[in-house]
């Protein structure tokens, strides 16, 4: 198992070609999966015996919540690589993942609130998961703002990487402290994700949506990385060749 293909990925020109070749395919696969998920989730899946039709928001809320955490972990790993090995491409990854992650965290929060209203009558419930999502959004905004505020690009990326890694350590602590805080007074209403019992016909569309949106955000991050990568290596020879090639 030689790892050369992986090491080559960290070289800017190679990554540019790799990204340009694979992102369109990833986006097509993502579109197909999302369409399947939508059809399966909205039309084929039967209504939930408890929550009726409103549980269909799960097909957007759960993938968004899962993505917000997965993208943050990816960003923190990129941050570690930036801090330890100073790989330039990891800086592009860190900067590219932050806005995508922030957008999906905001989506997870919004859909969580839209789901909360019909099921508990309140838009905002200080449930452990929703509160952790809110903290995650603040962390994302902190990373983006910190990176935006510093003028020198390399130092800005390292500062953002530092905050991303420190935030990563903080996420489980916040999750635990909110769980502990929530358990002090037993909330009368049922818990937020009343875990509607999902049988197969409901579950597969959910996987489809989750995988589809994950592929989409991966492709989106790679497109942003391409732009950031090209911007940082403007004077390199390979940039002229690649950008002036007719294919683009």
């Amino acid at each position: 198992m030689n790892w050369t293909w992986f090491h080559k990925l960290s070289s800017p020109p190679h990554f540019h070609r790799f990204a340009r070749r694979w992102t369109p395919w990833m986006e097509c696969a993502a579109a197909a999966l999302v369409v399947y998920g939508l059809i399966g989730g909205l039309i084929l899946a039967p209504p939930d015996y408890q929550q009726g039709e409103v549980y269909r928001i799960i097909y957007v809320h759960v993938p968004a919540a899962w993505l917000s955490l997965a993208l943050y972990s990816g960003m923190a790993v990129a941050g570690l690589i930036v801090l330890i090995w100073r790989v330039k491409l990891a800086e592009c990854a860190l900067i590219s993942i932050a806005p995508v992650g922030a957008s999906f965290t905001a989506l997870a929060l919004a859909t969580g609130m839209l789901w909360g209203k019909p099921t508990w009558g309140a838009y905002w419930v200080w449930d452990a998961r929703l509160t952790s999502e809110l903290v995650l959004l603040f962390l994302y905004l902190g990373v983006i703002a910190l990176h935006g505020a510093m003028s020198e690009p390399r130092a800005a990326a390292r500062a953002a990487a530092l905050l991303a890694v420190v935030g990563w350590v903080n996420v489980p602590i916040v999750r635990y402290s909110v769980d502990w805080w929530n358990s002090l007074h037993q909330t009368s209403s049922i818990t937020l994700l009343g875990k509607p019992t999902l049988d197969a016909s409901m579950l597969w569309p959910l996987f489809g949506m989750a995988l589809g949106l994950t592929l989409f955000s991966a492709a989106n991050v790679m497109r942003r990385m391409q732009a950031e990568n090209v911007r940082r290596n403007a004077r390199q020879r390979w940039v002229r060749e690649q950008l002036e090639a007719p294919h683009v």
Binding site: F138, A155, L184
Partner: peptide, 30 residues
């Protein structure tokens, strides 16, 4: 420390500090 080199930290300091300080406030007042 993170915002030391910026002319004024302004929005950044609270935005970076808030997520990290929540567990402390929760357990403290708890």
């Amino acid at each position: 420390a993170l915002t030391a080199s910026l002319p004024r930290a302004g929005l950044l300091l609270p935005l970076c500090v808030l997520p990290l300080s929540l567990p402390i406030v929760i357990f403290g007042s708890g």
